[in-house]
Amino acid sequence: MNTWTYIARRTLYVIPVILGVCFLIFVLFNVFSPDPAMIMLGKHATAKQMAELRAELGLDKPFFIQYLDIVKASFTFDFGRSWSTKQEIFQMIKQGAIPSLTVTLPGFLLSTLISIAISLLVAFYRGKMIDKAVVFFCVAGMSISSLAYILFGQWFFAYKLGWFEISGYEEGFPYFIPYIILPVIIWVILSIGPDVRFFRTIILDEVYQDYVRTARSKGLGENHIMFKHVLKNAMVSIITYVIIQLPFLILGALLLESFFSIPGLGAMTLNAINSSDFPVIRAMTVLSAVAYIIFSILTDVLYTVVDPRVRLH
């Protein structure tokens, strides 16, 4: 089957998935959660004020109509306005996406490349001192809370040494650069531990395969064997792992953004959760579901590029 037909067919799967996601969002926010009108107006509001607000937010409509509204919003990407800032949500997402990507994209690219390089290195020296040391530091690093890295980084490198901005953000290239350096470094440090451990296992699985022995018997050097023969075989698993992370790049880094006051989607989502801004939470949930499906289709297509044994159908 043609790759494009496959992509088209898989894209159609988005429809039932979004219907399901909408249903879950609806049940969680509109049926089980406390009355948003009460949260927004506080406990001293009169019944009349509450009724007016409910009518304004469309909460007085029958459940089924409310569900359809969510579905409609999901397919048109018109999520209405935020309850707290009254801004159009679509505009908010557009504005937040760029600052988010300026942090997550460099962080993701750097951490992935560095992790693959380290993994190849330690797989080459498997069982030796350097391998054991790297694995030790990965586990130790993973055992420390991400908050510790953020707070220590801000206190020591930004406040004490003054190397970086403590927090804040400026729009536009290259003005944002001083603000993203520390968050990106912390992102890389946070990712390297789990990434290296995963990639190392994948690569070690390949190093003992028969084709590696064949490659050696042809007279190939170890570098060539690692980077050409082993890496391409390991790529299948690495791609899955890496691409599954991509939706989160778009959604922003929740903690990093709010600690460093970066006006990205992560901080926006966290604020929305804190202020029970349901339309924003809803929009971000639908967006992440769609992003997830799109990137998993992309993963499948990339498999066929890396592994000739994979056929799409």
Partner: peptide
């Protein structure tokens, strides 16, 4: 040069 017992796994599956 050398050839091995397992022709099924001795060639690298992802290269022609």
């Amino acid at each position: 040069a050398m050839i091995f017992q397992e022709p099924m796994t001795s060639l690298n599956p992802v290269f022609t």
